[in-house]
Design a protein around this nucleic acid. Structure first.
Lengths: 164, 164
DNA sequence: CCAATTTCAGAGTAACTGATATCG
DNA sequence: CCGATATCAGTTACTCTGAAATTG
C-alpha cells in the first residue's frame, strides 16, 4: 500500500525506509535551521547545545557529547566557542576536580529564547496536521532508536573484515 | 537565579522535540552506517544515491538533488564519483539533450546488494519491538515533514527579514 | 531572453582520529 | 595502572555559494 507515483511507470515504488527518511528530513531541517539562525550568528550544533543545556544544566562535555551522538572532541569545540561568547559558563564539579559542568549564562538563556522564537514554529510547521496520539508515537519510536544507537555506539560488536 | 539545578534526579525530562530527535537519530545512524560501509569504500551519501537510483532509475542529477534535499552542485560530485567507479551510468535523455538520466550498472546493483546486507539489519534493529501500525505512522509523519520542507526549500515564501 | 540542467572552482561547516595530560 | 574526562592539533567528509555553458 504505497502511494504509487507515476514517475517511473511500472516500478513498485519501494517503501521509503526509516533510515532514508530520517536522513532526508534531517537534511531539510538543518538547512532551514541554518537559514533561520544565521541572523544571530548561531550554528545548528551551537543551538542544539544551548537547547540541551537549558533542559539539563550541569552536563559535562563528555555527557553532552554522548547525548548528541558526537565525539567529545567535536563537542568541546562547540562548547568552547559558546563559552568564549559568554553564552555558557563552566565550573569544576566540587566532587570531581576533573569534570567541568556547563550551564547557560543569562545571556545564553536570552539567546536561546530569541532563537526558539524562529525554531519552534518550524517544529509546528513540520507536525502540522498530525494529531496528538501520533505525535507521541513518533517521539517514542525515535527515542527507542536513540537508545539502540547509544548502545551500539560504544561496543565493538560489528567490525566487518577488510576485503576488496 | 537561585542555586543552579544540579542533577535533577527524578525530574521529568522535558519533552524532546522532533527536530532534536531527528538530529540525534540521524547522527547515530550516519555513524553506524559509515562504519558498516567502510569495507566497500562507500560513503553514506553514495550509498543513499545508489539506493534511490535503484528504486527510481532514470532520475537526473537535479531530480536526485531535490529528492535528497541537497544542492545539485553537491549531488553532482557524488554522482560523478559513482560514475567514475562504474557503479552508475548516465545517458542523455532522448527528448532533452541537456538532461542526463542516471541508472545503476550491473556492478552498481551488485554493490548495493552487498551493502544492503549490512544496512538493512540496522533498520530492523532500530525498529525492533515496534509494531506495524506504529511503523506506518512514523513513516507517514516523516513523509509529511519532507513535503513541508521541500516546499519551503524552493519557494521564496519563508525568507525571514534580516533583524539583528 | 528565460528557465532548467549540468558542472567547475573555491569555501565553509561540522564531524573525525590521534595524542597528551589530569583526576580519582 | 586503569578508566573517564578534557583538550590540543591535524584531517576528512559533506555541503554550500558563485559562476559559466548548454538546451529547449
Amino acid at each position: 500500500m504505497s502511494k504509487t507515483r507515476r514517475y517511473n511507470p511500472g516500478a513498485p515504488a519501494a517503501e521509503p525506509s526509516l533510515i532514508y527518511l530520517v536522513g532526508r528530513v534531517n537534511q531539510g531541517i538543518t538547512r532551514e535551521m541554518r537559514s533561520r539562525l544565521v541572523a544571530w550568528d548561531l550554528s545548528v550544533p551551537e543551538y542544539t547545545a544551548l537547547s540541551v543545556l537549558s533542559n539539563r544544566p550541569g552536563l559535562s562535555n563528555a555527557q553532552l557529547a554522548r547525548r548528541t551522538m558526537i565525539t567529545p572532541q567535536s563537542m568541546i569545540q562547540i562548547l568552547a566557542k559558546l563559552e568564549r561568547r559568554k553564552l555558557v559558563r563552566r565550573e569544576l564539579d566540587p566532587d570531581h576536580q576533573r569534570i567541568l559542568r556547563a550551564e547557560l549564562t543569562a545571556a545564553g538563556r536570552a539567546m536561546l529564547t530569541k532563537a526558539d522564537l524562529v525554531i519552534q514554529p518550524l517544529q509546528e510547521q513540520l507536525l502540522d496536521g498530525v494529531a496528538e496520539p501520533d505525535r507521541r508515537i513518533v517521539t517514542d519510536v525515535l527515542l527507542r532508536a536513540t537508545a539502540v544507537l547509544s548502545k551500539s555506539q560504544y561496543s565493538p560488536s560489528s567490525q566487518p573484515s577488510r576485503s576488496a
